[in-house]
């Protein structure tokens, strides 16, 4: 094990997979000469050359579609979006081409491709650069959606995503690139997609959190522990396929759930998890499922307003106390 940042863990995963498989290549805006807008691809151009690490023009629809086409004939593209806000231009190719190709070709063309990059809020980058896109992509059958919250998960899950035979949306978080954690250095270290992780065990309430909200939920759990409430924190890690069993098992134990998410609440992943819990474990619930979501507004620029738009430790603590009927 070595301690490294999320950025370094992602870089290591990319490097190892580029080394392992000649069919893997990385493309996107500023991934090569500039070393990545967030330096995730640092050193890769130098090591693998411009055949495997490719700077693209700012042409998201075009290079997303190019990646899907290359995947149709056996390559394994990793397409970086500088942020997932820009993936909106590429949704036609992600949704209409990548997600549907295997099905509408009657099983003839699978699409082994990874679309990756930062998702969600950053630091005061306002409305068009702060969006959490997971519910968009998770909506569509044919796509897998991954959201790591620790450096180790980031590495293990990215390696699995690159080896996966289907399109994977791999959502990183700009605020988390500098987060540190222990990471196995074994080149065969992978984490299977579709398996949730219990980040903290507890017995009084379950907090389901993903990506940016995982460290926040863990801190909230520490605070709640001091207040006498033992929280279990579940990180699904993969949104689709969702490991609902692990969540349900936790709910059956704690009987109370808070779902914490950075994204908007409406039609969100939290709403989906909530519905699943209602359908599968209604009789085990001692309180209604509670969501703590990002504000249902475009992200503002002003520092104080931005802070208000993103759930924090206090909002999660408050929600857990509510479902525990402590206030």
């Amino acid at each position: 094990m070595a301690v490294m940042t999320m950025r370094e863990a992602l870089n290591q995963a990319l490097r190892e997979e580029l080394q392992r498989d000649e069919k893997v290549f990385l493309m996107g805006e500023e991934v090569a000469a500039y070393q990545g807008a967030y330096k995730v691809s640092k050193g890769l151009l130098e090591e693998f050359g411009n055949k495997r690490v490719i700077d693209t023009p700012i042409t998201e629809l075009g290079f997303a579609g190019l990646g899907v086409g290359a995947a149709m004939v056996g390559l394994r593209p990793i397409v970086e979006f500088m942020t997932f806000n820009f993936s909106i231009l590429a949704t036609d190719q992600i949704i209409n081409s990548a997600a549907k190709m295997l099905y509408m070709s009657g099983g003839q063309y699978n699409i082994p491709i990874v679309f990756r990059g930062p998702n969600g809020s950053a630091f005061q980058v306002s409305s068009q650069h702060s969006q959490a896109m997971e519910s968009w992509y998770a909506y569509f059958p044919g796509i897998k959606v991954v959201m790591p919250s620790t450096p180790a998960d980031a590495k293990g899950l990215l390696k699995s995503a690159i080896r996966d035979d289907d399109p994977v949306i791999f959502l990183e978080q700009e605020r988390m690139y500098g987060n540190k954690g222990e990471v196995p250095e074994d080149e065969d270290f992978t984490i299977p997609l579709g398996v949730a992780d219990v980040k903290r065990e507890g017995k009084d309430a379950t907090i389901v959190a993903r990506s940016l909200m995982v460290p926040v939920a863990l801190k909230a759990a520490e605070e709640l522990e001091k207040q006498g409430v033992s929280c279990e924190v579940i990180d699904p890690r993969t949104i689709r396929p969702l490991d609902i069993e692990t969540i349900i098992n936790s709910v059956k134990k704690t009987n109370r759930v808070v779902i914490a998410e950075e994204s908007h609440p409406f039609c969100g992943v939290g709403a989906e998890i909530s519905a699943e819990i209602m359908e599968r474990a209604f009789d085990f619930l001692d309180a209604p499922v509670r969501r703590v979501s990002g504000a249902d507004v475009p992200m503002p620029y002003a520092k104080n307003l931005e802070k208000l738009a993103i759930p924090d430790i206090n909002t999660i603590v408050k929600a857990v106390r509510e479902v525990a009927y402590l206030d």
């Binding site: 290549f25 055949k51 629809l61 075009g62 290079f63 997303a64 579609g65 190019l66 990646g67 899907v68 086409g69 290359a70 995947a71 149709m72 004939v73 056996g74 390559l75 593209p77 036609d92 190719q93 209409n96 081409s97």
Partner: peptide, 15 residues
């Protein structure tokens, strides 16, 4: 929609 896809198929041939 097939135009970027075809471009990618050609990219793969060159690759």
């Amino acid at each position: 929609g097939q135009i970027p896809l075809a471009t990618g198929v050609a990219f793969a041939s060159k690759y």
